[in-house]
Structure formats: structure tokens, C-alpha cells
Design a protein around this nucleic acid. Structure first.
Length: 209
DNA sequence: ATATCGATTATCT
DNA sequence: GATAATCGATATG
């Protein structure tokens, strides 16, 4: 019997190795809203872990900069960065201050607020399958959730104050699959991508689903 | 000051 | 499978 308590996950949840956080984040819910109203909600179905100084693919690998400083701060905060001149990506910082690490949100399964998501994505939902294009990619899900500037960079995802948080609705997750990460050119063999096996909202090539 | 490239997406062949 | 779109961060001169 699922919980209906959708309060933010505690900071301690994120104060761990990004690989552990990534795996445990699958099945949780990303929520946009306020104390009185949830405007959007979607299940986390695909994430990637990025480590610190030992991970050449991580933004934190070459040390702290103005851009990646959130990764070096306390756990549970949003690291939002701009990529390819047109997309934003959302991460959550992991591990204690001084130890960089994070988890990239790569795909979500919409639960509520699909109309608003479609509006912010600039697409209409007229065919079966259009829902699949709402949040099935790191740049898509940020656009759907209105994370379209660095305004959200650094916000606390363990609090209601930013209007963006992560909750556990008590639902059980099915089989979890690990694969190499997508879109990187170094450390291409490390299996740090985690997904709900067979979930239709997952991004990337079919062979990695 | 200028060049290169990226944790992507949409569109075309 | 290949490529354009588009810009901030980073590297190099």
C-alpha cells in the first residue's frame, strides 16, 4: 500500500556515494509545486552517477569552478548547467561538502501535470505516444519542468522552498539495469547509468534499454 | 582574441 | 546514421 506522504527526501539520502544515490533514486518522484499544490510530478526512470576527482567524465574532475561549485557543496542541491548552446541538465549533488559528486537526471515518467509539461516543451499531445516525448531525455525533462535558466542552480532539493523536490511514494521498482553512460567521450566503459529495465520513457538507443 | 567542444535534441537520409 | 542549431566554458596564442 503506497505512502501518500510526498515530503522531500532528507539530506542524508544524498550524503552518500553517487552510485548508491543513483540506484536508490530510481522509482522516486520529482515534484514541481508548493506546500498546497503539486503542479507536476514524474517518476525517475533513468539516472547517471558522476563521481569526483577519479571520474574523467565528471565536471568536477578538474576541480572546482564557478560553473560546477554546487557539486562541491552540501548534498541535496540542484546542479543545473547549460549544454550544447540550447539545453539545460539537472543533477543533484551528493556526498558531504568538499567531496564532489552528483547524479544526472536523464529520464522521467510523467505522473501528473502532463498538459503543463507539453506546453513548456512546446508540443501538443494528440497521438498516443506523444507522452513519451515529454521527459525522455536530460534536456527534455528540464524543459518540461521549466528548468530553463540557471535560476534553479544551487537550489535545495530537500526543502519545499524552491518548489522543486524529490519524494518517495512507496511504490516498488522492478528490475534495475546498469549500462555505460551516454554522450561522453571518456570513461565510456564505466557502468554508471542506471535505469528501470524496459521502461518506455527511458532515453538512449534501444540496445541500452 | 580566437578556436574548439560539449553529461543534447530534432530532423533528414 | 549524419548533421544543424547555438552558446558558455575552456584551452591556446
Amino acid at each position: 500500500m503506497p505512502k501518500r506522504d510526498l515530503r522531500p527526501l532528507p539530506r542524508s539520502f544524498f550524503d552518500r556515494d553517487p552510485r548508491r544515490v543513483a540506484r536508490d533514486l530510481l522509482g522516486k518522484i520529482l515534484i514541481r509545486g508548493s506546500r498546497t499544490k503539486i503542479s507536476m510530478a514524474a517518476r525517475i526512470v533513468e539516472v547517471e552517477a558522476y563521481l569526483g576527482f577519479k571520474d574523467p567524465a565528471a565536471h568536477a574532475f578538474r576541480g572546482m569552478t564557478a560553473r560546477n561549485s554546487v557539486l562541491f557543496g552540501p548534498p541535496g542541491h540542484a546542479y543545473v548547467y547549460f549544454i550544447y548552446g540550447m539545453h539545460y541538465c539537472l543533477n543533484v549533488s551528493c556526498q558531504p561538502s568538499g567531496t564532489p559528486g552528483g547524479v544526472l537526471f536523464r529520464a522521467l515518467e510523467p505522473i501528473a501535470g502532463e498538459v503543463q509539461m507539453a506546453k513548456q516543451r512546446g508540443i501538443s499531445i494528440t497521438h498516443r505516444g506523444d507522452l513519451l516525448r515529454l521527459t525522455s531525455g536530460p534536456g527534455k525533462l528540464t524543459e518540461a519542468f521549466g528548468i530553463t535558466s540557471k535560476r534553479d542552480n544551487g537550489c535545495d532539493l530537500t526543502s519545499l522552498s524552491a518548489g522543486l523536490w524529490i519524494a518517495d511514494d512507496g511504490s516498488s521498482v522492478g528490475r534495475i539495469r546498469r549500462t555505460p553512460r551516454i554522450g561522453i567521450r571518456v570513461a565510456v566503459d564505466d557502468p554508471l547509468r542506471f535505469l528501470l529495465a524496459g521502461n518506455p520513457f527511458v532515453s538512449g538507443p534501444k540496445r541500452l534499454r
